[in-house]
Amino acid sequence: MSFRSFKSTIDEGDTVILYLTIHQIYSVKAEVKTLSKKGVLIDNVFQTQYGALKCGDLIGQKYGTKIQLSKGWGYVLQPTPELWTLTLPHRTQIIYTPDISMIILQLELAPGSIVIESGTGSGSLSHAFIRSVKPHGHLHTFDFHEQRVQTVEEEFKDHGLIEWVTVKKRDVCSEGFGSELEHRADAVFLDLPHPWLAVPHSKLALKETGGRICSFSPCIEQVQKTCLILLKLGFHEIQTIEIIQTQYSIQTRSIGVLNLDFVKVKKCEDSQEKQEKEILRTVTAVPPTTQPGHTGFLTFATLPPIWARTLAQENNDLCTDCV
């Protein structure tokens, strides 16, 4: 239940973030026993480079403290959507925090918003959506993969978030979002192989007072098709962007300095002493040698309120005419 609200002590069943180093962050469950792959109840032990952690021992500890491992130590943190994104079990490609942040701001979400997501995938973005809209908003999330739907629903229950989310198995491209969601949503998010097929359904699901839509696609061809249909259906402010985050390693570098003055004077026979090498120390931020250079294109658009739609549509028709 450790996602529900801020808390200070680890309770049994909490998901806990185990921080070892900047590149070694894991999530574990504070439980004495766990089910093995064969379905047998065994001790819940998590192996790390710094020794084993009996996860049951975490119960009663404070979040934000140091914990002993058999060959070192680690730190336990309460999960946030950001830490969960770094540690969650991947069942699909996931969306990362730089994109998630932009999606939430651009979809104009706030507590109380109703937001639709498809597909759910591994639930990385869903956790951030729920945080943004609770306590009086709701997330309706859809995926066409039966098992993913079940697993993610279990996760939401386990994380104490189920009251703010409804998970359904559905192929929204062919079936839409359902009549109960017509004109209910403030925002729609699409992460689908064929997002353009879901745009008409999205328009139907958005409130009559208007709303925002976002489509996340890795390929530019998907973006092109999506933008055309958005234009055709009277969306405006259509904008496509991409964001790449670079994380730096801060280092103090020692750099040798070449002194070439001595070459201009004759070598002195008697001065045997060697000149000491000069070293300059400089602080620098080093980007990684390789990093992701592309995640996906984010396409955003606004559906105007119903009283402004005919004009927006007219304007777009003029644009598409010359296209």
Binding site: V223, I244, Q245, T246
Partner: peptide, 9 residues
């Protein structure tokens, strides 16, 4: 410490 590259299309 991080920074972002962002561009529009």
């Amino acid at each position: 410490l991080s920074s972002n590259f962002m561009r529009s299309y």
